[in-house]
Design a protein around this nucleic acid. Structure first.
Length: 397
DNA sequence: AACAGGGGCAACCGCTTGCCG
DNA sequence: TCGGCAAGCGGTTGCCCCTGT
C-alpha cells in the first residue's frame, strides 16, 4: 500500500540518485518545505512527498552529522534509551546532527549486539537470565540462598571476592549490618561503586525522610576516598523497624533479598527486577519520572553546580514499586571532599566493577555502571551543558 | 575468482497524532 | 464533532558491500 500522495501519481521508489538529491536540495534551499506533498511537483521529482521528506530529514539536511558515532554519542544513546526505550526521535534529540533513523539503525546494528554480548537485555538493560546465572555461578550455584544478595549479610558483610560484586568497605559497619539493627535509627544501606573516573551516582531511599536522609548521605559520603575520582552510592533507608539489616539489591540476580521494600506489602523490589525495577520505576513513566528536581536541605547551592562538585537530587515518586518516595541523588565529577560520615547508621558496600566487567576485572566493560553514572552526569549537566539537563530531558520528552 | 552469508544503512510501510475546515 | 490531510514516528524490508570460504 502506498502513501496517500503516492496513490495519486506515478512515483519513483528506491534509492535516490545524485540528480534527485540535487533537485530536492535546491528546491528546499530556495523555497523551504511548507508542504511536503507539493515539494516533488515543484522540485521536478517523480517522488512522493513523504519520500522527499524522509530523504531530506535523514540524508540531505545540511545540519546532519555524518559518519560513525562517537563513544560519547554511543553512551548517550544507551543512557537515554534506558530511560525512554525505543523512542528514537526523542533519543535523537539528544544527539545533535543525528536522525532518529540513524540512531535506530546504529542501535539495531551495533549497540544492541554489544549489550547482548555483555549479557544485558537491550530492551530492559537488565542482565539476561543466562548472564545472571553465569555471574552468580560460583561453583554452579546461582545464589543458593535464594535470597538475592545474601552476600550483603554474610561473612560479616565481607563478601568473598569473586563470588559477588559486592564487598563491604567497612567491616565494622558491615558487622553491625548483620547484627541486630539499631532500635531506633533506621537502616541506611548504601552501595558504593568505585572505579568511575568520570563521576558518580548516589541513590538513596528513605521511606519517610527521603529528602533529608538522602541529603545527609550525600553530604556525609566521602566521594573521593576511593582514589578513583568518583563512586556510586546507593542508599535505602526505611523507617520500618522490622526490616533493618535486611535490605539489599542484587544487581546480578535482578532481585532483592528480604528487603525492606518487600515488607511494605507493596511488592517492594521483590518483583524479579530488583535494581532494575527501582530504576525502571522512575525511568519508564516519563511524565512522573522526572519529578521536579529538589534541592534538599543541606545541599544548598547545588543547582547550577559545576561538573566537579555537582550533586543533584531528584525526587521520584516510586509508584511502580510501591515503596513510596524514592530519592535519587547523583553527583558527577571528582571528589567533593566531603567530611566524615554524619549518619552513623550508614553502611557502605563496595560494588566491584566486576559485576559487569567480569570476575576480578579491574576495568568494567564498555557498558557497566559507569554508564549509569555518566548517564546521571549527563542528566545533571555533567557533559558541560548549560542549565539543568534533567529538566531539559523532562521537558524534551 | 566465485560464491554465500552477514552487517550496515537507506528507504518504505503503516499506524498515530495534530491541524484545519 | 467529524472527516480529510499532512506530518511524525517506530518497525520492517531490501539492497549493497564487505568478508570469509
Amino acid at each position: 500500500m502506498g502513501h496517500h500522495c503516492c496513490s495519486k501519481q506515478k512515483v519513483k521508489r528506491g534509492l535516490w540518485s545524485p540528480e534527485e538529491d540535487e533537485k530536492l536540495v535546491r528546491y528546499i534551499s530556495e523555497h523551504g518545505h511548507s508542504c511536503w506533498s507539493s515539494v516533488p511537483k515543484h522540485a521536478g521529482l517523480q517522488r512522493c512527498g513523504k519520500s522527499c521528506r524522509l530523504r531530506w530529514i535523514n540524508y540531505l539536511r545540511p545540519d546532519l552529522k555524518r559518519g560513525t558515532f562517537s563513544e560519547q554519542e554511543e553512551r548517550t544513546i544507551i543512557d537515554v534509551h534506558r530511560i525512554l526505550g525505543n523512542r528514537w526521535a526523542q533519543i535523537a534529540k539528544h544527539l545533535p546532527g543525528r536522525t532518529d533513523n540513524e540512531v535506530k539503525n546504529f542501535w539495531n546494528s551495533c549497540i544492541k549486539k554489544k549489550l547482548i554480548a555483555q549479557g544485558l537485555d537491550p530492551k530492559t538493560h537488565n542482565l539476561l537470565p543466562a548472564s545472571k546465572t553465569l555471574l552468580h555461578g560460583v561453583g554452579g550455584a546461582a545464589n543458593p540462598s535464594g535470597n538475592g544478595l545474601a552476600q550483603f549479610q554474610s561473612n560479616n558483610g565481607v563478601a568473598a571476592a569473586g563470588t559477588t560484586p559486592f564487598t563491604i568497605s567497612s567491616p565494622a559497619k558491615a558487622a553491625a549490618f548483620d547484627v541486630a539493627p539499631p532500635a531506633i535509627p533506621p537502616a541506611l544501606y548504601d552501595v558504593v561503586l568505585p572505579a568511575n573516573p568520570a563521576g558518580g551516582m548516589l541513590m538513596a531511599h528513605d521511606h519517610h525522610h527521603h529528602q533529608a536522609a538522602a541529603a545527609a548521605a550525600v553530604v556525609a559520603y566521602p566521594y573521593a576516598d576511593h582514589g578513583n575520582g568518583g563512586g556510586v552510592l546507593m542508599s535505602f533507608r526505611d523507617q520500618n523497624a522490622n526490616v533493618h539489616g535486611a535490605a539489599s539489591m542484587d544487581f546480578m540476580n535482578g532481585s532483592s533479598s528480604s528487603s525492606s521494600m518487600e515488607q511494605h506489602g507493596g511488592g517492594g523490589m521483590s518483583n524479579g527486577n530488583g535494581f532494575s525495577a527501582s530504576m525502571a520505576a522512575f525511568m519508564d513513566e516519563e511524565a512522573a519520572m522526572w519529578a521536579t528536581a529538589v534541592e534538599p536541605p543541606g545541599m544548598g547551592g547545588l543547582a547550577g553546580m559545576d561538573q566537579v562538585a555537582q550533586q543533584q537530587q531528584v525526587l521520584v515518586q516510586d509508584a511502580a514499586v510501591g515503596v513510596g518516595p524514592t530519592t535519587l541523588m547523583m553527583h558527577g565529577g571528582a571528589a567533593t571532599g566531603a567530611g566524615a560520615m554524619v549518619d552513623k547508621s550508614v553502611e557502605m558496600v563496595d560494588v566491584s566493577s566486576a559485576v559487569y566487567g567480569g570476575a576480578g576485572g579491574a576495568t568494567a566493560t564498555a557498558f557497566d555502571l559507569d554508564l549509569m553514572v555518566e548517564s546521571c552526569g549527563m542528566f545533571c549537566g555533567g557533559g558541560g551543558g548549560a542549565g539543568n539537563a534533567m529538566e531539559q530531558l523532562q521537558w524534551d520528552c
